[in-house]
Nucleic acid binder design. Structure first.
Length: 241
DNA sequence: AAGCCGACCAACCGCAGTTTT
DNA sequence: GAAAACTGCGGTTGGTCGGCT
């Protein structure tokens, strides 16, 4: 299944299988439930955090997020987000939609990404001390900067223009820097965790440069996240399907 | 035991993009 | 180039289950 009838030929599948469903329905059933490579069971903490990171970057692009979580479907992640992670973020005082603290004034309605800051987040915006570490973690996660990083990387930059471009995919190189250590153990920089090894986005080799700013407030130094500085994003490294 | 309620998740729906004719 | 067919995606709905009263 999934070859002669099935993937790439869903219309013929219900007939061949004697089903009353339409091909579209069969496709959905296969993708979300029957595929043999699906991972069953609860989401791990690592998966949780990765989903949060990816959502803060990609928004509700569930298929792209799912592409970074082998064995998970977009539908599954979407459901998990709506039932678990949303509440989790709200409990931490984070707005699940914007990934900003709930008490932070609303920004423009346009889709933007805001990065974290070299200056520490003001404590009064974080609520109780009890939740501080969690919030800190989330805020830093949201900003794609690991909490444990010692070196200040950039100023809080204004909202970024998310215009993307397609470029040739980069090739894996054996001399890619080793994952850096975080408090909990070895982990990849965010770009690497997205599969962007050796791209300009890899924070293992931070680039200091300018970041495109929609505010036109001038240039700031910082990390060339996802090639936004250069305006080049290896889209194929995000799209895994 | 029965009813209510919230959580969970598979499936449906409509739209947009892509491919084929 | 236009129309039709197909595919993929994201939002939403509805059924099921378990916990609580």
């Amino acid at each position: 299944m999934g070859r002669t009838h099935g993937e790439g030929c869903w219309r013929s599948l219900p007939q061949a299988a004697g089903l009353l469903r339409c091909g579209k329905s069969c496709r959905l059933r296969w993708i979300n439930y029957l595929r043999p490579d699906l991972k069953r069971g609860n989401f791990t903490e690592d998966e949780d955090e990765l989903i949060i990171k990816l959502h803060s970057l990609l928004g509700n692009k569930w298929s792209l997020i799912a592409g970074r979580l082998p064995g998970r479907t977009d539908n599954e992640i979407k459901n998990y987000w709506n039932t678990h992670i949303r509440r989790k973020l709200l409990n931490r005082g984070i707005d699940p939609a914007s990934h900003r603290p709930l008490n932070e004034p609303a920004q423009e309605a346009s889709t933007t990404i805001s990065f974290s800051t070299t200056t520490p987040v003001k404590e009064e915006s974080l609520g109780s001390a009890k939740e501080e570490s969690n919030k800190d973690k989330i805020i830093c996660t949201t900003a794609f900067l690991y909490k444990e990083e010692k070196t200040p990387v950039q100023e809080r930059c204004p909202d970024l223009n998310l215009e993307l471009r397609i470029s040739l995919p980069c090739q894996n190189q054996p001399d890619h820097p080793q994952p850096f250590k975080t408090g909990g153990g070895t982990s990849l920089c965010f770009a690497c965790s997205l599969g962007l090894q050796n791209s300009k986005d890899c924070s293992c080799s931070f680039i200091v440069g300018t970041i495109g700013s929609s505010s036109g407030a001038g240039t700031k130094t910082g990390y060339d996240f996802l090639g936004m500085k250069s305006g080049v994003l290896d889209y194929r490294s995000l799209e895994m399907k």
